[in-house]
Write a protein that binds this DNA or RNA. Sequence first.
DNA 1: ACCTCACTGTTTATGGCGTACACAATGTAT
DNA 2: ATACATTGTGTACGCCATAAACAGTGAGGT
Lengths: 318, 318
Amino acid sequence: MTRGKAKDPDRGVRLLWGETEHDPRPGLSLVRIVRAAIELADEEGLAGLSMRKVAERLGFTTMSLYRHIPGRDQLVDLMRDEVMGERPAAPAAAGRAAGEPVPSEEPLGESGEHVADERAGRVRAEPSGGGWRARLETCAREGWELRRRHPWLAEVRGTRHIPGPNVIAHYEYMLSVVADTGLPPGEVIAVVGLIGRFVDAEALLLVEVAQAERHSGVSEQEWWGTQGSLFERLDRYPTLSRLWEAGGWDHPEDSFEFGLARLLDGVELLIQQRDETRDENALCKECGTPVDRAPSGRPRAYCSRACQQRAYRKRRSP
Amino acid sequence: MTRGKAKDPDRGVRLLWGETEHDPRPGLSLVRIVRAAIELADEEGLAGLSMRKVAERLGFTTMSLYRHIPGRDQLVDLMRDEVMGERPAAPAAAGRAAGEPVPSEEPLGESGEHVADERAGRVRAEPSGGGWRARLETCAREGWELRRRHPWLAEVRGTRHIPGPNVIAHYEYMLSVVADTGLPPGEVIAVVGLIGRFVDAEALLLVEVAQAERHSGVSEQEWWGTQGSLFERLDRYPTLSRLWEAGGWDHPEDSFEFGLARLLDGVELLIQQRDETRDENALCKECGTPVDRAPSGRPRAYCSRACQQRAYRKRRSP
DNA sequence: ACCTCACTGTTTATGGCGTACACAATGTAT
DNA sequence: ATACATTGTGTACGCCATAAACAGTGAGGT
């Protein structure tokens, strides 16, 4: 894979961000290829996605695809951005980033004001109440939901995938949610990355199970049953055996829900810590110099008795 | 991949758990193949690991490998277990699970008491002070370290890899560490899985960067620089721009350290909650019946005023 | 000594993959 | 009408895993 050279390195960007030339003519077109590829990947997974099969599904030869797309990698980028444009559940109108839904060919929703000169990807409709935690959780859940519809999304690996408008819109929104917490920039980015990678990792787990079941014809349980002689050897591991007998594997936690809760808890703790630190490093309300924090007790508002007194006098007789 | 049928489903288990037949004869052997494969994967990644190249490296034909190993998948299983047997940093002697280091051919360490009838994998030397958190963190760090030595380890995907003795020993140890916290079985397993998947996901990130750099010859920075026209389009995303200008990407957090800290914080919180719950569900100190928890305030020690009074009298005049 | 047989390595072949390259058909601009 | 850009096709290359048939080699039994 990815053996092709980049004769025109900008081609990938333009395909994703360029105005969609939706010609109703017969024959191949970018969107048709992308659509067919998504269908195929939905059915057979990303490993089952091949240029040959996409072409077959469209009734063309393999090489015809290359007249529209530089190669397989760019096709995947386009597929990713396409599905990221699907609305999560309730349809949403334009947002603050000059939005207009991007799903090509037919926006499917009622057309709002057209901006059309540049695509900016689908963005969230409104802040949609709740604190950062509820919103971040919703983001994670929508990502999870999306990956249940399009499992291959979690299989997309590699760091050099060009983000399209919809991918960026998602990213922008998540960043804005976390940025509202007042965390420093580096940590905002880290939190968003952490959550995103978590969702992907968990989704990948499910994909792998499904994939193995599909193309082996044997369910996960049955398959492990086949490896009977393995389990006999596990008796000598005390913790393993104890947990097994306690039914730990019979009633497993939902690993997505469990992990998400732990992760959000961890982030919440970080935010609390930062808040405290900020308070402790607060400036004197009177003179502006930094207040040194006390080892315990209520954080001080003034740097010295003198300032405290000055402020008191001001309050009494302004 | 994985197109071979399982004529002998137990073969995989026996290869991993069977006594190592280390024949010093010339020619091929299981261990030689596994060693060569590990070298190759260390250099070229799991995607670069092919039966052809392994055979070439050993000076045999491709098909000769199949006389010793059912297929590529099983080879990967064997490689995984092999490297899991490497000692983390300080060499460790036998543990409680009838340990003996498994790294085949030559154990490399000073031989302790031989048990030898069955392999049980390398296990930790001792509880090695510190609470669950320090120990779990050490586990994660060792996993991280191992994946830096053998990056392909993170690339091993799929749910149907048979664990060998060393893999199981690691798992057993992590389970025991978390089990010590008193969490219910399902949650113990969930925590260990969560941490494990996190380490893998983060390691995979690095692998992907390195891999892309290696076989494209262009560094990550340079490559993204090539996509210049992308960044021009990102100006209209407010949060993205703000974080960019604030230098969020210039001084990024160490995503492994950051994520691990959040994760452990989240787990710690869970454990605290469970402890409180346990206290709240504590039994009456006098009569033993469960105490119903109050919505707020100090948890009650007695189920009723009557029991509280009885206990008080006992204390006064025993 | 001879035959048998298991073990080990080789040769050949099949079907899959991404894509480079030369060629053909078609519609548009000059 | 001619030149040209666009679009689709056919062939070919090198890579992958592995199935199947074949060949050499040494051990055991007769």
